[in-house]
Write a protein that binds this DNA or RNA. Structure first.
Lengths: 144, 144
DNA sequence: TTCCCATAGTCCTATCAACGAACTATAATA
DNA sequence: TATTATAGTTCGTTGATAGGACTATGGGAA
């Protein structure tokens, strides 16, 4: 008698699978120095640049962790820190052209995964899954 | 115009929320020395004990990582290593009574989360979500 | 049997992620 | 102006992770 796995664990399994695939896709495209945590942080950067503390909040990590990740991203040439014209204490983290080149590859793999999942589940169930997950986010994502 | 988040990211958000809640619940019940990774490994232990390499495979981590996690679990009194009577090379990782006391608390929080999610989504949508996730596992979980 | 290779687990080492605490500089407010 | 809040960094520590090399045991082939 098999115990039913919690929905959260099932989500963990599939989301990890997806994260690994995106990570591997980036590696193959010449972005092998990016890690999953770094990529996740980078995804939170707005086109005009984003403050470190905002990035930390979006990724739900401490400021110190974000500092360390941005340090590595900067050294690898993915982001740059520029002064925030509206606040002398703050700096904006901005993507460089290298990061902008990586994004489409990540998005492409995301789309590929999404299509495979849709093909496996069928269009309608995939749609229901998306809606349920989006709805669930309202009570599981403290930062909207 | 907001870009639709990938389903995998939505899963990541909710699964992390659940993992944090279970982790915090265990902390409050006197199991504050358990980490999320250690708990996850422990969940893979069968009643009669399980080989380290099997645990590593189930958690999808390297043997060395599993060794390190079991070391910590052993030092904290959650598991013990006993000889495998069927294979002189192997040892079985078994839960101690302390671990067995922790399990119900984790399960209880899991159930609480599951109920809240069901209340939020409605019984039918929650059921559809579960089924879709279970089905998806067939193509996202390399170890069944 | 004996020999060779596979397997189970560990040790060593290195890297990454993560964060509490303390600190500096700037902004905002009383 | 003095005080307090905020943005970000630095320091130090812990945990997770894995590559590579190693030991001991098991299993199959000659």
């Amino acid at each position: 008698m098999e115990r039913e796995l919690p929905a959260s664990l099932l989500m963990f399994i599939s989301s990890r699978s997806a994260a690994n695939r995106i990570f591997e896709a980036l590696q193959k495209q010449g972005f092998g120095d990016l890690t999953i945590a770094q990529s996740r942080l980078m995804m939170g950067i707005d086109p005009e640049g984003t403050r470190l503390s905002v990035l930390a909040e979006r990724a739900q990590i401490a400021k110190q962790t974000a500092t360390a990740l941005v340090d590595k991203l900067e050294r690898a040439g993915y982001v740059e820190r520029v002064a925030d014209p509206t606040d002398g204490r703050a700096r904006l983290v901005r993507m460089t052209s290298r990061a902008k080149k990586a994004i489409p590859h990540a998005r492409a793999e995301e789309d590929r995964i999404e299509r495979e999942w849709r093909a496996h589940l069928g269009t309608e169930r995939m749609q229901l899954l998306r809606e349920a997950l989006t709805d669930l986010r309202k009570i599981t994502d403290p930062y909207q």
